[in-house]
């Protein structure tokens, strides 16, 4: 196993969590919390990060069945942040504007997912098209 596979405490190392079932949601958010804590994020911020990862990973399970969460500690010269990429090759989202509206959900089981995650994070980007999967990239800077 390489240092990259272990990669939690080392700045700049990234972690990849394959998402195949609801138990992987827990694995992904725990890994994200561990990385945030190792990078000196405050406990409240680490919980925000874990919660955002939980929502993003659940979207993968619900809509795409399988996908991946990639976690990276980044540094812009002044401060550290954590970047979270949730990527899948699922059905994609036809109407992104609508998906970003509060309360909107096609599965009937979410509704606060994407707009909620956007509120928790400092930066949010989503790329998706029908049949082309979905890729959500978010970033939270350490305060």
């Amino acid at each position: 196993m390489s240092a990259k596979d272990l990669g939690i405490s080392v700045l700049g190392a990234d972690a990849r969590v394959q998402i195949r079932s609801d138990s992987d949601i827990v694995v992904a958010r725990q890994k994200g919390r561990a990385m945030a804590t190792a990078s000196s994020f405050a406990p409240a911020e680490a919980t925000l990060i874990a919660t955002a990862i939980s929502e993003l990973a659940r979207n993968i399970v619900l809509y795409a069945k399988t996908g991946e969460v990639i976690l990276k500690i980044v540094d812009n010269g002044n401060r550290h942040g954590i970047k979270i990429i949730a990527a899948d090759e699922g059905p994609g989202i036809a109407d992104l504007d609508r998906a970003m509206q509060l309360g909107y959900s096609t599965s009937g089981s979410l509704g606060l997912g994407l707009p909620g995650v956007k509120r928790l994070m400092d930066e949010f980007e989503i790329v998706s098209a029908p049949g082309k999967g979905t890729r959500v990239t978010v970033l939270k800077w350490r305060t």
Binding site: P43, A44, A46, T47, L48, T51, E55, L102, L112, G116, R119, L120
Partner: peptide, 10 residues
Amino acid sequence: EVAFSMVQLG
């Protein structure tokens, strides 16, 4: 911190 993130998420 859980209460904080719940409020942030709405």
